[in-house]
Write a protein that binds this DNA or RNA. Structure first.
Lengths: 194, 194
DNA sequence: CTAGAATCGGAGAAGTCTCTCCGCTTGTTC
DNA sequence: GAACAAGCGGAGAGACTTCTCCGATTCTAG
């Protein structure tokens, strides 16, 4: 997807090494500084000229995608694995909490899931859809099991997720996202007089 | 505060009119487009040159402050009025919901309370502190009354508030902030096995 | 009606940012 | 180890920002 070199022309050895290094540094830079970090700054930290980095990743978006796609894929896989768990409520809440927990350690991931910084997964990407679908399945099962308020939609849950992550972006106290997830999970539980 | 013309030199009539108009247009522009709208764009919409707008408001921040301060003040006043309400829980949840409701109609207010766009109330401003203090008082009373989980701090509640507003920024479905507030309030309520 | 001061307008300075271009360097191949 | 394609570097183009400057305009006082 982000890779436009077919198997035909294998990268030159040094180029391959450099690409790896850029990816590595970009991952660290994005995790700590979020999506607003500039392309030039990433190149500088990696010790390359901007031109070099652009050679490997045609746009900033492509670089970000290369770095973050894997992480999001893992969330989707996690959700799929839980799709047949016995305790649907436990599966749903556990997944939700885990996503918040892991995403909150990565600024750029927060930014992207939270979508506040103007940069998003390309709508064309199936991944955004996969994520929503996986979440939806988990949610519906949990609702059928009576563990989650029935008036919540998948979109609502995504918004709630975003909300938890938004707290972390402010970077105030590390871990505030996780505490928020606890409150939010409680709120999503079924029953209790309003 | 944002007003540097003392009573000594009253504004010329046309200037006063223009200032009013800028404020009016800026209010509309900020409400619909959020904090990221450019200063030039606001001037353009108001039908003035940028220089003119800068004459009235020395920085973009000053303009934003002039527009939004009043709104936030109202929240603080609302909270103060509720400080002695009989039902502390009802007061707290009502206030929380009302803030989300009203703020969610104004993009710039969401941005500012949510603090995601890099622009904040100047730390020097007493208003940020007033807001936090008023919220804190409401919270503590509600907790004493046993209506709110005791493990929540004022900062947590602010984060939760921010989270609700963050959903609205995405502008997906109008009103998602309010629905989130409902879930979140439920989560903040005391008791219920975890 | 006519100074004279207050106000206006908008080009442009200075700072971001993303991304392009092309001469120079380096790896690979025979 | 020479030839040549592949890769590198970074100046700078172009598109934004926020904010400044000062000549042209408009209001108001006498």
């Amino acid at each position: 997807m982000g890779d436009d070199h077919s198997a035909a022309r294998p990268l030159r050895a040094d180029a391959r090494r450099n690409r790896e290094r850029v990816l590595q540094i970009a991952q660290e830079a994005l995790a700590s500084d979020g999506l607003t970090i500039s392309f030039d700054e990433i190149a500088r930290r990696a010790g390359f000229g901007v031109g070099t980095v652009y050679r490997h990743f045609p746009t900033k978006e492509a670089l970000v995608e290369a770095v973050l796609l894997g992480r999001i894929e893992r969330f989707v896989a996690d959700a799929r694995a839980l799709a047949t768990a016995e305790d649907a409520g436990r599966a749903f809440f556990g997944w939700f909490t885990r996503v918040v927990e892991q995403a909150s350690a990565n600024q750029a991931l927060c930014d992207m899931l939270e979508s506040g910084s103007g940069m998003t997964l390309r709508p064309g990407s199936t991944l955004a859809g996969d994520f929503a679908a996986a979440l939806g399945r988990l949610l519906v099962r949990a609702q059928r099991a009576g563990a989650v308020r029935p008036d919540l939609g998948a979109q609502d849950v995504q918004d709630l997720l975003r909300g938890c992550l938004a707290a972390e972006r402010r970077a105030r106290a590390r871990g505030s996202a996780v505490r928020m997830a606890d409150v939010v999970c409680d709120g999503m539980r079924a029953a209790k007089a309003s």
